[in-house]
Simulated scan of single mutants.
Amino acid sequence: MQHPLAARLLITGTLLALTACSGAGAAEPRDTAPPAAPTGLTATAGSATTVHVMWEAATDDRAVTGYQVLQDGRPVRELPATTLMADVTGLAPGTRHAFAVRARDAAGNLSPATPAVPATTPRATAEDREPPTAPRALRVTPEGPGAALLTWTASRDDTRVTAYDVHQGGVRVHTAPGTATTARLTGLRPGTAYSFTLRARDAAENSSPDSAPADLTTAPAPGAPPNTSPLALAAASDRGEITLTWTPPDTGAPVTHHELHIDGRFATTIAWGTTPPPGRATYTFPAQAEPGTTLTLTLRARLPDGTWGDFSAPRTVIVR
């Protein structure tokens, strides 16, 4: 039989333990505040069956975790917080729709929807298989911190151009209407080398060849050192080989080593055993990829202090 005093001690000890646990694990207040509505919404009909929707990031007291795209008031796309554009597909040719976006946080709170923006898909053109001509005279100029303005000469098409797609490093980052010859890009990082290309598109989803690239290196952040990326990188492929040419950065000393990355992964180090030749550098290497494969190439130089500098603007090349 258990002694009464032992029972009282056991009960008291249990109560003390419970009291200690309840104090240590106090829950955070429930998140009931929704994010702010996204801003800067645009909707552009890219073809007879698609509309490209873009917006600027929303803010939240904790963090935005995703976005919801609405078509005519109904959710049609769910996207992560890192994505600020989407194609709405499967639309009927020659129809008008209204698009809006709202943000979501980790607690599931939804922001108010943006004001709806209309877009009308063009009518389909039967058996249109001819792509537009490539846009010409693409230029890019900085426009304040973190922004740039693209300008170009319009493409031609046997029907009409419905959209222009801006690509950076092989990835589409913006879509402008087919009537536009300018586009403003935002959200660029300071001290970074970019390379932009442009494609025209018609209502039948035929895309033009890429324009010639236009490069931009954004201004460094206050107090940061100047950009050290190799300049004017060019790439050409022939008979399974790729030839690169570029201008090494001005580092105050000869640049004897460059690092080549293919599709974002380290590929090889390009080294000169002696003082490198002046002017533009050239390097040829086997593609090691099937013909028709598209590769994205970047370079960076080894600086006099032994560290690696900034990456060049990317170049894409099709293996031939």
Score class of each variant (00 low, 15 high):
residue 256 T to V: 07
residue 280 R to N: 11
residue 77 R to S: 12
residue 277 P to Y: 08
residue 196 F to V: 11
residue 60 D to K: 07
residue 170 G to V: 02
residue 177 P to G: 13
residue 80 P to D: 05
residue 301 A to G: 05
residue 36 A to Q: 13
residue 151 T to A: 11
residue 213 P to C: 09
residue 257 H to Q: 09
residue 192 T to I: 00
residue 248 P to W: 14
residue 8 R to G: 07
residue 172 R to C: 04
residue 149 L to A: 12
residue 11 I to Y: 08
residue 111 S to I: 07
residue 243 T to R: 14
residue 8 R to Q: 13
residue 208 S to L: 01
residue 314 P to D: 02
residue 40 G to P: 06
residue 69 V to E: 09
residue 71 Q to C: 06
residue 65 T to W: 02
residue 247 T to A: 12
residue 75 P to S: 06
residue 235 A to G: 07
residue 224 A to L: 04
residue 222 P to M: 02
residue 119 A to W: 11
residue 265 R to E: 11
residue 138 L to W: 03
residue 233 L to G: 03
residue 128 D to R: 05
residue 23 G to F: 14
residue 88 V to R: 15
residue 40 G to R: 09
residue 45 A to Q: 12
residue 216 L to W: 05
residue 282 T to L: 15
residue 86 A to L: 05
residue 151 T to D: 03
residue 265 R to Y: 03
residue 265 R to L: 08
residue 318 I to A: 01
residue 174 H to N: 07
residue 180 A to W: 13
residue 229 S to A: 08
residue 41 L to G: 00
residue 176 A to Q: 08
residue 237 S to K: 08
residue 201 R to H: 10
residue 12 T to H: 13
residue 215 D to A: 02
residue 174 H to Q: 12
residue 63 A to D: 15
residue 317 V to Q: 06
residue 56 E to S: 08
residue 110 L to K: 04
residue 91 L to I: 00
residue 82 T to I: 05
residue 12 T to G: 14
residue 251 T to G: 13
residue 13 G to T: 07
residue 36 A to M: 10
residue 204 A to W: 06
residue 75 P to Q: 11
residue 294 T to L: 03
residue 200 A to K: 10
residue 288 Q to L: 08
residue 112 P to C: 00
residue 306 G to D: 08
residue 84 L to F: 06
residue 151 T to S: 13
residue 240 G to W: 03
residue 300 R to S: 07
residue 211 S to C: 01
residue 92 A to K: 15
